[in-house]
Computed example of a mutant assay.
Amino acid sequence: MDSQIVTFLINCPDDKGLVAKITNFFYSKGFNILSCQQYVNSIENTYFMRIRLNAEGTHISKKELEANFLELAEPLNFNWSVNYGDRKPNVAILVSHTSHCLYDLLERQKEGDLDCTISMVISNHDKLRPIAEMFNIPYFYLPVTKGAKEKQEEEVIKLLEDHKIDLIIMARYMQILSSNFINSFPERIINIHHSFLPAFQGANPYKRAYERGVKLIGATAHYATEDLDEGPIIEQGVERVTHDCTPKTLKRIGADVERLVLAKAIKCHLQNQIIVANNRAVVFPESGE
């Protein structure tokens, strides 16, 4: 096997002996277990595992490993995925007018904090092109014109498919994606919402937060689904505010929270720390990778 670090994500109905069965399987194939993280949802009787393996010294192919694991998985009703860590995920960023999340992500990727390749920035406006060019990232300007939104989406989808994009980041991309778009990339679109969901959904959340006199503001990063702003939540953050904050002040404070929340959610996705089940994201903590 070419890759050295292998990550399996598993969820299934809870049952006795699952840990022993899974770990014994990997031991029998010559893997060294680096970490094994577990969570049991006792309400829904569901078991979740993230297991990282060192494949050094094994002589099993990927195809053989997956076929052998399937023999274990099928009788136990596993939902599972495997990542071999042998290539960096290919990422696209979608933006509109606002630059803070875009700049932050490009800087983090350049510094090595996000282990991926950012292949393109796509926007319905041309305003943020200089930021992409600063980091030598191709910038595609695809405007949304009246009556032609569907055509614009088709062009975006083609770009993403042609470049074999693994993850799409909506870094304040102020367009509602169609069901066709979302279903083309299930659990591969991460959106940042500039409020603390489920409060203040939709547009102008800071104005409405000001009008309500909130004492906490925040941001939510989630997978995009057909239900607007209701996809599985990956990460959230909050910041205390006071009565003398204006909508402008709230927006500035919120931008800082958005940067941190979005970056953390993306990092969790890139490091295969997330299992989605029943519109809920189980997010395992970092385990020293």
Results as ranks from 00 to 15, higher is better:
122 I>N: 01
19 V>M: 06
69 F>Y: 11
193 H>W: 11
80 W>I: 12
188 R>W: 03
196 F>D: 04
264 K>S: 15
2 D>K: 06
110 K>G: 14
151 K>P: 02
261 V>Y: 03
23 T>G: 03
204 N>V: 07
77 N>Q: 10
95 V>N: 03
84 Y>H: 09
68 N>G: 09
234 I>V: 15
172 R>S: 12
227 D>V: 02
108 R>Y: 10
229 D>E: 09
15 D>K: 14
3 S>Y: 02
263 A>Q: 11
89 P>C: 07
54 N>Q: 13
89 P>Y: 02
70 L>P: 02
100 H>K: 09
258 E>G: 02
161 E>R: 13
205 P>D: 00
25 F>D: 00
193 H>V: 12
12 C>V: 00
130 P>W: 07
165 I>M: 02
67 A>P: 00
193 H>K: 14
129 R>K: 15
265 A>C: 07
214 V>K: 05
52 R>M: 12
130 P>V: 10
29 K>A: 10
23 T>E: 02
217 I>N: 04
264 K>I: 12
99 S>K: 12
184 S>M: 05
174 M>H: 05
38 Q>F: 00
240 R>A: 08
230 E>T: 10
112 G>N: 10
233 I>N: 05
91 V>M: 10
169 I>S: 05
107 E>P: 06
234 I>C: 12
115 D>T: 14
71 E>W: 14
270 L>K: 03
65 L>Q: 13
134 M>L: 15
30 G>F: 02
211 E>N: 06
92 A>V: 11
198 P>D: 07
97 H>T: 07
72 L>D: 08
47 Y>I: 00
232 P>E: 11
20 A>K: 13
184 S>R: 13
156 V>E: 03
28 S>P: 05
170 M>Q: 09
133 E>Q: 14
201 Q>T: 15
148 A>S: 10
200 F>C: 01
252 R>G: 08
28 S>Y: 07
257 V>H: 07
152 Q>C: 10
59 H>Q: 15
263 A>H: 09
120 M>G: 04
38 Q>G: 03
6 V>Q: 04
144 V>L: 11
124 N>H: 04
255 A>I: 08
126 D>C: 08
21 K>Q: 04
286 E>R: 08
249 T>S: 15
198 P>Q: 03
134 M>I: 13
67 A>G: 01
97 H>E: 04
39 Y>M: 02
253 I>Y: 03
68 N>S: 13
8 F>V: 01
145 T>A: 08
111 E>D: 08
93 I>N: 08
145 T>S: 08
80 W>A: 12
196 F>P: 00
213 G>M: 05
266 I>Y: 03
